[in-house]
Amino acid sequence: MGEHRIYGMSFGSIHQLYVNKVERKGHTRDELDQVITWLTGYDDQGLERAIDSGVSLRDFFAEAPAMNESAGLITGVICGVRVEDIEDPLMQQIRWMDKLVDEVARGKKMASILRTPA
C-alpha cells in the first residue's frame, strides 16, 4: 500500500485550516501556534518559515527541532482512532497535532493541553 496522501500535504495549508477552526471557536492563532511549537520545538520564526515554504507534513515533522518528550502523554480519539494506538510514527505525530488543535478549539486550559503537571 502506498504512502498516505496527508504526508505530502503542505503544512501551510493544514495550518490555515487549523487557524480557521480555532478562530471559528473563539480562540486565536497565537494559542494554536503555542501548542504546535510546544509539540515540535519550532520557534515562531521556524514555524513561519515552514508555513511560507510549502513544506510537506512529512518534512515538517522530519525537520522538527525537537519533538516534546511529553508528547506521549497525548491521548484520546481523533477520527475514530486512539492516538496512543497509532503505530506509524509520522501519522501519530500528525494526530497528536490534531488532538492539540481540537483541545485549543474546545477551550481546554493551556496547562492541560501542554501536559503541564498541576
Rank of each mutant, 00 (worst) to 15 (best):
M1Q: 10
M1T: 15
E3P: 05
R5V: 15
Y7I: 03
M9E: 15
S10F: 12
G12F: 07
S13P: 00
I14K: 14
I14D: 01
H15V: 00
Q16E: 08
Q16W: 01
Y18N: 13
V22M: 08
E23P: 01
E23K: 04
K25M: 11
K25C: 09
G26W: 08
T28C: 08
L32F: 04
L32A: 02
D33M: 00
Q34A: 05
Q34E: 15
Q34F: 00
I36Y: 04
I36C: 09
T37S: 04
T37Y: 00
G41Q: 04
G41H: 02
Y42V: 05
Y42M: 04
D43L: 06
G46D: 05
A50N: 04
I51E: 13
I51G: 07
I51Y: 09
S53P: 13
G54R: 03
G54F: 11
S56R: 03
D59F: 05
D59N: 14
F60R: 00
A62C: 07
E63V: 08
A64R: 01
P65S: 02
P65Q: 03
P65F: 06
A66R: 15
A66S: 14
M67L: 14
N68H: 13
N68Q: 12
N68R: 06
E69Q: 12
S70N: 13
A71I: 06
T75C: 07
T75H: 10
G76V: 06
G76A: 01
V77P: 08
I78W: 01
I78Y: 02
C79Y: 02
V81D: 08
V83N: 05
V83E: 01
V83K: 00
E84Y: 02
D85H: 05
D88N: 15
P89W: 01
P89Y: 02
L90C: 06
M91T: 13
Q92K: 07
I94C: 08
I94H: 03
M97H: 07
D98V: 01
D102V: 06
E103M: 13
E103Y: 11
E103D: 15
V104E: 15
G107H: 10
K108D: 14
K108P: 00
K108A: 12
M110C: 03
M110T: 05
M110I: 02
A111Q: 10
A111K: 09
S112Y: 14
I113L: 05
L114K: 06
L114H: 11
R115P: 00
T116I: 15
P117Y: 12
A118R: 02
